[in-house]
Structure formats: structure tokens, C-alpha cells
Amino acid sequence: MIQKICVMTDGDNISAKYAADILKAANTEGQLIACRVYTDATKANGWASTPGYRLVHSGAGKNAADILMALDAVDLCLTKNVMTFLIASSDGDFTHLATRLREYGAKVVGIGEAKAPAVYRAACSKFLEMKPIAPAVTVTAPPQAPKPKKVAATPQLSLLDSQIHRLIQESPQGPGEMTYGAFCGLMRATYDITPKDLSETDWRSYLQSRPKLYFVSPKGAEAVVRLTSKPLPNAAHSAG
């Protein structure tokens, strides 16, 4: 014959994290007809939101949960003929309750933590010790390495710009610059290139249309052509 079993949990002594373990143990002992947890309902101890348990508010007095739990257990045994109890607590004060219930012929299964005293364990028909539940471990993702900055590709110079760069870099007037007049003359003398070979109308227009490569000062006798960037890789070597 399947025994009716009632779970009586001391919510002031047992953490709600053991709720599932207590129910599992009860279901192996008989047919669960009542599952109660006794505690101060105003406490935020997790029992109020635990499914499967009827929360019995015991108030905030000292040992209030213990006293109410003991009274209800004796009442269930004598008036409802419940003959199997699972007392979930590690409190040695329940030694007397376990002893009295067994005197009435009831089976008492105690369940609690390792700290439960030996005298309480001995008063039960049997005692189940719950294993400590390890705290949840928060896994933190390793920090991501910073993304490498994109480096702009270095543009290749056209053959004409390579020739201009070489001419200005080797300028006798100073590396990287020369007068506009000297530039026009040397481009013709060195490479035989004149404005008629350009898509622009003159050298000034050509140079000013490429501000990342060249700087041309305002018109005048002292107008200067200057490189505005460091020497760039050539697409082809100039002739001569």
C-alpha cells in the first residue's frame, strides 16, 4: 500500500535552492498529499515564489516557524491519518517532533544539511543529507582584441607624376621644391613634355588639380612648385 506523505519544510532554516531535492526525496517515499513551507512571508528568502509549495506564514517571532510546523504535523497525524512525514530542516529542535510522531506510529524521514546534529538524525526513521549546491558561476567572455585600424593604401604614381616627383626631388634649388618657371623649363628639357601634351591647359592647372601631390604658390616671378607628400612608389621609372 502506497503511504501518504506530507512535506514539512522549515523555510527559516533551509534555503529555497533545495526545493527540488526535497520534492524528489518525498516522491520516493510515498504519495505526496501536502507540501508546506513555514516561514515569515515578509522575508525575501525565495520560498514565496517556489512552485510546488504552500507557504504558511508563521510570523516573525522567535521559533515561530518551528512551533507552527510542529503543531500542524501532530494535527495531520492524529486527525488526517497521515503516517509518513518528511521534515526538511537541519535544526536539532525538531528532535522532539520526530520522536513524538514516531510514538504515534508515523514514519519520519528527515532531510537536511551536514550541520544537522546527530541526536536529530537518530530521532528520525531515516535521515537524508543534502549535498551542498555550488554557487552559479558567471562566465565572462574574454575581452575582444581591438580591431586593427585600416591603413589607407598608398596610391601608385602615374609615369608622368613619377617624372615630376623625381625632377622636384633632385631640384638644385632644394629637395622637394623649385620655382614654377624652372619646373616648366626642366620638364621640357628633361622629358620633352610641354603643356600641349597634357589634358589641362597648362602646368599650373595640372599641378593644382592634384593637391595631395603638389603645392603651387600664387602666380608671380617667385612662384614655387613644392611636393606636398613624402615620396611615393613609382609606377614606372622615368627615362633619361
Score class of each variant (00 low, 15 high):
L159T: 12
A60M: 12
A88S: 04
L55S: 03
K62M: 08
L157E: 08
K62W: 03
I87M: 09
T99G: 05
L68E: 00
K149N: 05
K149E: 08
L78H: 14
R121G: 08
D91V: 05
P146K: 13
D66Y: 06
T79D: 14
A145E: 13
A153H: 07
T154S: 11
V74P: 00
A88H: 01
A106Q: 02
K147Q: 01
P155S: 12
S162E: 05
L101S: 01
D161A: 07
A70K: 00
M69E: 05
R102T: 14
A145N: 07
Y104H: 15
T79M: 12
V139C: 11
Q156T: 14
A70H: 00
A152M: 12
A114I: 06
P117V: 12
K115Y: 03
L76E: 05
E103N: 09
H57I: 01
F94M: 06
A141T: 14
A73H: 08
K107A: 08
S90F: 02
E129V: 07
P155L: 09
H165F: 15
L101V: 00
V109L: 04
L128T: 03
V151M: 06
Y120W: 14
D161F: 10
S89G: 04
A122G: 08
Q156S: 15
A153G: 12
V137W: 01
H57F: 03
R54K: 12
V119K: 04
R121A: 09
A106E: 03
Y104P: 10
M130E: 04
V137N: 02
K147I: 00
K107G: 04
R102W: 09
L68D: 01
A70G: 03
E113A: 12
L86K: 01
G105N: 09
I133R: 11
A60K: 14
